[in-house]
Design a protein around this nucleic acid. Structure first.
Length: 245
DNA sequence: TGGCCCGTTCCACTTACATCA
DNA sequence: CTTGATGTAAGTGGAACGGGC
């Protein structure tokens, strides 16, 4: 944009005189006669001062205007416009930075999602293996598997049926991630974070009590998963939920 | 002391112009 | 030569602030 400035300034020389028509500030007529860009030297001086102070004291403004052969108002306006340019540039940089962070997080989520899916497949295979190897199972083994089903409460132990296949389907798991019961609050998730046996912990949440997760619990859960609030910086809670489901 | 007016400055938005591809 | 895009000096209106009365 400024490439042609040398030519302009060279052909027109010092442009101070050009502004004589602008000496009456804020004139109603919108036509700007002989609008000229400031010379490179003027811009250099202004930029140099802007680097150290983005706002000018009145006395300094007068002095600078004298030094550069400009009207004080021109100096003030230049600083105003310069602050506006600086601000929009900064906003643009912040936007890019946030977008990069968002892209990185989205990428990480995608890979974690894939990892989760492969682990689920692996889990399914192992559970099938266990079921088939025991072919009906004995009661002590069955009790172990059953503890997965009933959340380890021990209740309903006698109602367990050997032929009942453990619910390891993806659908069930995903439901458990996004939706769980009120009385089995976020502690279940916390335990699963710490536990070595994440698959079992996740399965402790029963399909039978699929109540919608209360908003307060949901937020607690987010803060436990994302203590720094990184997720909230680029995405709403519901959007991140969509990631998981 | 509180309220009003006035001048100044700042910001956000817009316009007008110069320049370039 | 025309035209659309872009950068920038300056206009405009409103808010905030300080000083004088």
């Amino acid at each position: 944009m400024m490439e042609g400035d040398e030519n302009i300034q060279a052909s027109k020389g010092k442009n101070v005189e050009s502004f004589s028509s602008l000496e009456a500030p804020r004139k109603k007529n919108k036509k700007i006669e002989n609008k000229r860009r400031f010379s490179d030297e003027q811009i250099r001086s202004l930029e140099c001062i802007f680097e150290t102070e983005s706002k000018l004291e009145p006395r300094k403004k007068m002095q600078l205007a004298r030094d550069l052969g400009l009207q004080p108002r021109q100096v003030a306006i230049w600083f105003q416009n310069r602050r506006a340019r600086w601000k929009s540039k900064r906003i643009e940089q912040e936007y890019r930075k946030l977008k990069d962070e968002y892209d990185n997080l989205a990428c990480r989520f995608e890979s974690l999602k894939k990892e989760k899916e492969s682990l689920q497949v692996e889990l399914q295979k192992l559970s099938d293996l266990v079921v088939s190897s025991h072919d009906g199972g004995r009661e002590d083994k069955g009790a172990k598997e059953h503890s997965i089903e009933d959340g380890g409460s021990g209740s309903g132990y006698s109602s367990w049926k050997p032929e009942a296949k453990p619910r390891f389907s993806n659908e069930g798991l995903e439901d458990r991630v996004g939706v769980y019961s009120d009385d089995q609050n976020e502690n279940s998730i916390m335990r699963s974070e710490k536990s070595e046996d994440k698959g079992h912990q996740l399965l402790r949440m029963d399909d039978n009590d699929h109540a919608e997760m209360p908003l307060a619990s949901l937020e607690k859960w987010y803060s436990s998963v994302d203590p720094n609030g990184i997720l909230d910086q680029s995405c709403s809670s519901s959007q991140w939920l969509d990631f998981w489901t």
